[in-house]
């Protein structure tokens, strides 16, 4: 059966491990809802066109551009069907003293910092999905985002540093 949503209404969405109740229109982008309804302003608008990646968040662990997503796609019913797993959104606000943040600090991988949330989420997604990524793969992922301040070398080093740490970390017991 089709689910349908018309007009502005309240919905539940799962962000950073919390269920949040938000009022949204079906035409609202996820970026808009994160920022304007949920106060999670870490994700930034840079183009709202899919070009800059400043709005990147993780959707079930995969980096996606929140300006290209409709928030309504993430709405879960008040009483979800048995076994249904809500799609989980993670924003930069969920990162806390992680390796990728440390590496960005250590390598001076930002100046104005406006692109940083997007790059961090992209890098965090890469760490989780492809810890063994080759240098070429790292660059291919990072090409999704724009930084106007740094030379990219710093960002690439920070991401490689993150993956190296990930690979040398002892396996979880």
């Amino acid at each position: 059966m089709a689910t349908s949503h018309t007009g502005r209404a309240e919905h539940l969405i799962t962000v950073n491990g919390e269920q949040r109740r938000v009022t949204l229109r079906p035409a609202d982008t996820l970026l808009y809802i994160l920022r304007d309804e949920l106060g999670l302003t870490g994700a930034k608008p840079g183009c709202e066109n899919g070009d800059c990646g400043a709005c990147t968040v993780l959707v079930d662990g995969v980096p996606m551009k929140s300006c290209l997503l409709l928030a309504i796609e993430f709405a879960t019913p008040e009483e979800p069907a048995a076994g249904a797993v809500p799609r989980h959104i993670e924003t930069v606000e969920s990162l806390d003293e992680t390796e990728v943040q440390r590496q960005f600090l250590d390598h001076w991988a930002f100046q104005c910092g406006y692109c940083t949330s997007g790059f961090l989420m992209l890098a965090e997604g890469l760490r989780r999905q492809r810890p063994g990524a080759s240098p070429g793969e790292v660059v291919d992922w990072l090409r999704s985002n724009i930084c106007r301040c740094t030379s990219y070398a710093e960002i690439i080093q920070a991401v490689r540093g993150t993956l190296e740490r990930e690979r040398s970390a002892p396996p979880p017991v």
Binding site: M1, A2, T3, S4, H5, T6, G7, R25, P26, A27, D28, T29, Y32, E48, L70, I72, E73
Partner: peptide
């Protein structure tokens, strides 16, 4: 930000999608 409004439908079969359309 998309200024216009639309309704959103999420069918689970192609036939349902076509019928909705």
């Amino acid at each position: 930000m998309i200024p216009i409004d639309f309704s959103y439908w999420r069918p689970t079969s192609a036939e349902e999608a076509v019928a909705l359309y």
